[in-house]
Structures are given as structure tokens and as C-alpha cells.
Design a protein around this nucleic acid. Structure first.
Length: 589
RNA sequence: GGGGCUGUCGUUCAGCGGUUUAGGACAUCGCCCUGUCACGGCGAAGAUCGCGGGUUCGAAUCCCGUCAGCCCCGCCA
């Protein structure tokens, strides 16, 4: 084929009967070749889809010779006429199934090794292999769809925020290590040996400084780095839709975000999301769902029964309550069908999560089956059943422990049971804001207070005095957005006075020197007319994961890392040369 | 750091102490085939059973260690 002005004139997937008779130039990959001895069919794939091209030796022997050599994933350029398929040979499974291309010219632009797995959706192949050959994996339509959806989210968000007066500002990737929070990724400084940059865990301080700078409305699609262990929804680097706003109240920020999320759903999924979303106090979420990211697609709510059994003769329960603990319960409707071994399994789960055990009562027709009911008074059982709205056929599960453990254990059991009993309607999107969280929590191991959100979160007005008097009762002006049990965003109003900021730092055990060294620039900035401000950040990867109904954010990231934080394609991280280390004045030990 | 699941031809599964010369499917290669589209038919090639120890007359199979992938706990302000 002669060099022509263009490589292709059309896309394989875009062709239809509308182009009947047209001469087109196509380029793409060989999805499959079907050689019938004489006639050869080739499915030619490009980004938009597949079209069948046909070679018939009676029409052109030279082309047929080439067609015989073609193999999967070869790159072809084909000239031909868009033709209607003979009657009865149309393929309804193919968007272009009414037509085919009768080849008049064909070039092999490139050959291909036999790929390690087929380029098609629903491949059953180990994820490690997919990651090693990510360039092939990404050829699969499903992966292209995920990346496209991701782009669409980004585009929608940019448009939306632009329309609302936001300015996109980039902040440094090479920045300063700060105390608190996750482990930092460090970058050694060559010009200042012994000194290190840190990669940002989030642009938090910069975006607040931008508020001091009068930007008023900032956003950034910010890459964030955290050197912690990985999970299905956690990568060492992830992308945040990061925002900060001056002169806006919590309610204003929340409703703007609801509008943004709803716009994303309507643009990407053509789905109308109802808002405002429900809001739930943090404390109530911990009580009813056992965590701060409740999955509302099913019931199984946790209830406290401490008051009923506070004076019970069943010491496991009453002692727990009288030593500051609680007894909480889940009613598994229809759970009487659980076998003894299934109950043992749940007990094991409870123990592995830190509980001393798991008590249960099975309500049968006219009797109770339970290892604990003999210790309980009839009246106590009756009251419990009342509160739990238990009826025949139900199963009650109890944990007696300190409140945080009881919440954690029952929260996990709740999820486990929902999964086992198939209670989750996966077609649903259930949003909820978790609001009014504590400002700090106490870290038993480090024997100090830790910020629940981060050290810059504004306490509620009533809480300012509590910072010193009763820190654990202080509440924060913070809000997390939860979708289907996954935290997809979190934000807060920020402290904008040096005075309060210092109080909070002090509460967190940050010394005066540390304050100056790590946050001096922020405290300085606060002295130059800082506007009240607040913000929020959404996890882009998680949001897209949920939109695409994927189980892992790896499926919506082009080049993700494995659980040991390795890139199987590039094999990063790797060793470096002695020369590089010498320049950085770094020695291995 | 801890718990769990999984490592067997290119891929995906089976085999779980001894007729195994490690089997099937898909892919690959060869021959045949003019309407297929998961094309079909016949045939062939392809695996030191992740790696290292140990137990045993004998190990893919049992045990220990290790590495890798996945899920979870810790961790992730």
C-alpha cells in the first residue's frame, strides 16, 4: 500500500449501514481471524468497537496471502467497501453486525506475539498477569470504559467547579514532612544533604494558605501519597478532588457538593440522584452501624440493651455495663436458620476483632435456644426481645464490651451477615453525610489525643471551651460523605485564628518548637487577615470504583500497584546505582 | 507485624502419598474446510507442579521455611 495522506478515515466501531457502499480506510487490531480455507474473516478492533472484514481469494489473491498470515493483535490497515452482509449472516451480537468490509487493500502495520490472555471482557485471568501486561489489559473494552468514566467524572467536576467560580491551582509535590497522619514518602535533597522533602499526603496546608491569599474558591485534582499498607480501596498514591472555599458555611459547602455529586451521576451514569442526602451524627452512626461509614443498603441495625441488663445476674453482661462498657445487639431477621458452626464462625470473627465472645439467642417457635438465656430473667429476655423487635425465627447476637469494641465488632458482623444472607441490593446508591464528629480521640498506645479528622479542623462554637476542659466531648465542624459503606469524601470548616489553632496543637501534644518548625508559616499567615474557610476532598478513585461497580480501585487506575506496593509492569520500586546514592549522600545499612 | 485464600503447560482448571509417561479446556503450531462470528474437523507441540529444605522405599500431593498475588486486622490525621 502506498503511503497516503491519512492512515485511516473511519473507526471500525462507528461503521453502520449508513455508510453502505462507501470506501473506507480502517486501522486497528485483529480481535480474531476465522480461516475457512478459502474465505477468511477478520474481526478488526479499534477503540470504538469491532467490524468484520472479509477476504475472498477469488477477488484478490495477494490480499488473501496477507490475510492468511494475520494473527491475534496484529495491527492492520485496511481499505475496503462497506457492504451489507449476505442475508442470514448478520450478527445481532455485534453493533456493526449488519455490515462487513470487502477488502481492496491491506497492510500489516505491525505484528504481535501471542498475547498471554485474550483481549476481551470477563477474562478469567490472575490479576498479577493483568498488571504485568497492563498495556494488553487496558485494551479490554471494560478497562477502556473505566478509564473513560474516570475522565468523564474529572471533566464534569472541572466544568461544575468552573461554573461555580473555582480556580484550579497546582500545589507542590515536593513539600515538607509534617507530624500526625500517615507515614510520609520521603525524597532526599541533593543540594541539602541530610534534608528531605515529603510527598504530600494532601494539599491541606497549601489550600488553606490559598484562602489566606484570597483565592476564595480553589480546587485541584491532587495526587496524594501515603506510605501505608494497601487494600482493595487504598493505593500508595491516589487522586483527590480537593477543594477549599472562603466565606461559606458548612451547609453551603454540603449542598454545593450534593449538587456536584448529582451532576456527576447524571453526566456519567445518566442517573438522577436525589438530594439533599441524609445526615447522621457521628455518634449515632457508631451506635447504630458500628462505624463512621455505614452501608445503608440494608438494615441489621445495632441497638443498645445495656440498661435492661445492667443489674442482671448474668455477670458477663452486668459487669461489662458496670465497668463502663455496654451490651449491644443485632437482630438477624430469619437468622434462626444459622447452624451451630456458622454461629461458632461468627464468634471466632468477633474474637478476632477483639471481643471476648459473642452471645446469641435463637428464637424458635415456642422456645429459645441459647447458651446464655438460663442466666437471664424472663422479664429481661422479654424486654430485650421487645427492644430488638425480635420474633420467632430471628437470631439475636450480643457483644458486651467497651463501647468502641462493641461498635467495631457488631459493625463488622453486620457487614458479614449482610453479605452472607445476600441482603445488599447492588443496584442502589445510598449516600449519607456523617456529621458532628468528635474533635479528637484518645490514643491508648501513644497515650495522647489524636485529631479525628486533622489538626486544622474547626471545633464547634460550643466546643471551643472544651478543648482544654473536656477534649473528648469537643465536636468538630466536619462532614464525611459515605456511599454504600465507603467513605468517598471528607471535609471540615478550618480553624482560621492563631489562638484556637495553637490550643488544638497543644491538645495534640505538639510542642511550641514543633509548632514553629512545622507549621510556623501557617500560624504566621493566620496573622494577616485569614478569612473563615472550609473545604472537602473526594477520593476520585473510590468514587469511580463505585460508579463502575468495581470491587477495587485498581480497576479504575491505569497503572496501579500490588499489595506489596510493586508495579508489576515497571517492577518499581527498584535498586539504584551507587553513584545516585553517593550524590544524595545516602548509605544503605 | 498478624489472620485467611491461592500458586500445576501461554492462560484457566483437574490431579492432593503409588498404572501420572502430570489430565481437560482455551490459546499456539501444522493439515483440511467459501459465510463464519466462542467457526468447524483431524493432528502436533507445550509443565524441572513458585522457590528452598525436610518426612518417606516413593512427594505436584504431607510438614517447615520462603517468595509472589488476592482478601482482611493493625496501620491509613
Amino acid at each position: 500500500m502506498n503511503q497516503e495522506e491519512v492512515i485511516r478515515t473511519h473507526s471500525a466501531g462507528d461503521l453502520s449501514v449508513k455508510k453502505l457502499g462507501a470506501e473506507v480506510l480502517l486501522a486497528g487490531w485483529v480481535q480474531r481471524r476465522r480461516d475457512h480455507g478459502n474465505i477468511i474473516f477478520i474481526d478488526l478492533r479499534d477503540r470504538n468497537g469491532i467490524v468484520q472484514i472479509v477476504s475472498n481469494p477469488t477477488q484478490n489473491e495477494a490480499i488473501h496471502k496477507i490475510a492468511e498470515k494475520v494473527r491475534n493483535e496484529f495491527v492492520l490497515r485496511v481499505k475496503g467497501i462497506v457492504s451489507r452482509r449476505p442475508k442470514g449472516t448478520e450478527n445481532p451480537n455485534l453493533l456493526t453486525g449488519d455490515i462487513e468490509i470487502i477488502i481492496s487493500q491491506m497492510d500489516i502495520l505491525n505484528t504481535s506475539e501471542t498475547p498471554p490472555f485474550e483481549i476481551e471482557d470477563n477474562v478469567n485471568v490472575d490479576e498479577g498477569i493483568r498488571l504485568k501486561y497492563r498495556y494488553l489489559d487496558l485494551r479490554r473494552p471494560e478497562m477502556l470504559k473505566n478509564l473513560s468514566a474516570r475522565y468523564k467524572v474529572v471533566k464534569t467536576v472541572r466544568n461544575f467547579l468552573d461554573k461555580h467560580g473555582f480556580i484550579e491551582v497546582e500545589t507542590p509535590i515536593l513539600t515538607k514532612s509534617t507530624p500526625e497522619g500517615a507515614r510520609d514518602f520521603l525524597v532526599p535533597s541533593r543540594l541539602q544533604p541530610g534534608h528531605f522533602y515529603a510527598l504530600p499526603q494532601s494539599p491541606q496546608l497549601f489550600k488553606q494558605i490559598l484562602m489566606v491569599s484570597g483565592i476564595e474558591k480553589y480546587f485541584q485534582l491532587a495526587r496524594c501519597f501515603r506510605d501505608e499498607d494497601l487494600r482493595a480501596d487504598r493505593q500508595p498514591e491516589h487522586t483527590q478532588i480537593d477543594m477549599e472555599m472562603s466565606f461559606m458555611t458548612q451547609d453551603e459547602i454540603i449542598s454545593l457538593m450534593e449538587e456536584m455529586i448529582s451532576t456527576v451521576f447524571s453526566d456519567v451514569l445518566e442517573m438522577e440522584i436525589e438530594y439533599p442526602f441524609e445526615r447522621l451524627d457521628y455518634d449515632e452512626s457508631m451506635l447504630r452501624y458500628g462505624n463512621d461509614k455505614p452501608d445503608l443498603r440494608f438494615g441489621l441495625e445495632i441497638k443498645d440493651v445495656s440498661d435492661i441488663i445492667a443489674n442482671s445476674e448474668f455477670k458477663v453482661f452486668s459487669n461489662a455495663v458496670n465497668s463502663g462498657g455496654v451490651v449491644r445487639s443485632i437482630n438477624v431477621s430469619g437468622g434462626s436458620s444459622f447452624s451451630r458452626s456458622q454461629l461458632d464462625e461468627l464468634t471466632e470473627l468477633a474474637k478476632s476483632l477483639g471481643a471476648n465472645g459473642l452471645a446469641w439467642i435463637v428464637l424458635e417457635e415456642n422456645s429459645l435456644k441459647s447458651p446464655i438465656v438460663k442466666f437471664l430473667k424472663e422479664e429481661e429476655v422479654k424486654q430485650i426481645n421487645n427492644r430488638m423487635e425480635a420474633k420467632s425465627g430471628d437470631l439475636l447476637l450480643f457483644v458486651a464490651d467497651k463501647p468502641s469494641t462493641a461498635a467495631d465488632v457488631l459493625g463488622n458482623i453486620r457487614l458479614k451477615i449482610a453479605e452472607r444472607l445476600n441482603l445488599i441490593d447492588h443496584s442502589q446508591y445510598k449516600f449519607i453525610w456523617i456529621v458532628n464528629p468528635p474533635l479528637v480521640e484518645y490514643d491508648d498506645e501513644e497515650k495522647r489525643y489524636k485529631a479525628l479528622h486533622h489538626p486544622f479542623t474547626l471545633p464547634t462554637e460550643e466546643s471551643i471551651d472544651l478543648i482544654e476542659k473536656d477534649p473528648l466531648s469537643a465536636k468538630a465542624k466536619a462532614y464525611d460523605l459515605v456511599l454504600n459503606g465507603v467513605e468517598i469524601g471528607g471535609g471540615s470548616l478550618r480553624i482560621h485564628s492563631k489562638d484556637i489553632q495553637q490550643k488544638v496543637f497543644k491538645l495534640l501534644g505538639i510542642t511550641e518548637e514543633e509548632m514553629q518548625e512545622k507549621f510556623g508559616f501557617l500560624l504566621d499567615a493566620f496573622e494577616y487577615g485569614t478569612p473563615p474557610h472550609g473545604g472537602i476532598a473526594f477520593g476520585l478513585d473510590r468514587l469511580v470504583m463505585l460508579l463502575m461497580k468495581k470491587k477495587s480501585i485498581r480497576d479504575v487506575i491505569a497503572f496501579p500497584k500490588t499489595e506489596t506496593a510493586t508495579c508489576l509492569m515497571t517492577e518499581a520500586p527498584s535498586t539504584v546505582s551507587e553513584k545516585q546514592l553517593r550524590e544524595l549522600q545516602i548509605r544503605k545499612r
